[in-house]
């Protein structure tokens, strides 16, 4: 394949047919593989950098995720869910496994929560808020801060219950309870 410079911000990631592209990868279609890379590598890298706090490690995770995508494309079944979600699941597995291998030491970024709160509050940064009334981002905004904070720390920073408890200076049981309660409320909100 020729080495072209990848586009960073895919203009139509939402309308792209990820499922068909993954199925094409399973048939050995390298152009489909490249299209997925062009469309998603920028957003995958952004998420991996949040989790791993290192560009090099994040690029490793994205590299590994795409190789896994190529190897396992035949296992994807569109009837089970969205192809883009499947691709990001591979990335999260890889990034979280990397964090575990490192002992998942929390990194010193005290303003992470503020930044994440800004992201949720600022509609201009949203990639696409158009389709459904109750996206998870909306539902998170409805949660009280004590329930939302630990959930965001887990999702964006890959912290464990214990690390979240330490970071927020709260008892472990309290944190576990808040996350469970928060997830229940999210479930209800998403099903409305």
């Amino acid at each position: 394949m020729p080495a072209q410079k990848p586009s960073v911000s895919p203009p139509d990631a939402e309308s792209f047919d990820h499922a068909s592209a993954i199925e094409a990868c399973a048939r050995g279609d390298e152009a489909a593989f490249r299209s997925l890379y062009d469309l998603e590598s920028g957003r995958m890298l952004a998420l991996a950098m949040r989790l791993l706090n290192s560009r090099d490690q994040a690029e490793d995770a994205v590299h590994d995720a795409f190789i896994k995508l190529w190897s396992n494309a035949g296992q994807y079944r569109r009837e089970l869910g969205n192809g883009r979600a499947w691709l990001f699941t591979i990335l999260r597995y890889r990034a979280l496994d990397q964090l575990r291998a490192q002992g998942r030491t929390p990194r010193g970024d005290s303003d992470a929560l503020d930044t994440l709160a800004d992201l949720l509050a600022n509609p201009e940064t949203a990639a696409d808020d158009s389709q459904t009334a109750h996206q998870l981002s909306d539902c998170l905004g409805e949660l009280e801060v004590p329930r939302r904070e630990p959930i965001l720390l887990a999702f964006f920073k890959g912290l464990t219950h214990e690390q979240i408890a330490e970071k927020l200076n709260a008892p472990l049981g309290t944190i576990k309870g808040r996350i469970r309660a928060g997830l229940k409320l999210l479930q209800e909100c998403l099903s409305r």
Partner: peptide, 26 residues
């Protein structure tokens, strides 16, 4: 599981995309 992941995409998509280094695709 895929549904949860799809829900989370609406959140992680709010992160500005990061340009990958030229070496990543290579």
């Amino acid at each position: 599981a895929l549904r949860w992941q799809q829900h989370w995409l609406s959140v992680s998509d709010r992160l500005p995309p990061e340009p990958a280094s030229d070496s990543l695709w290579k």
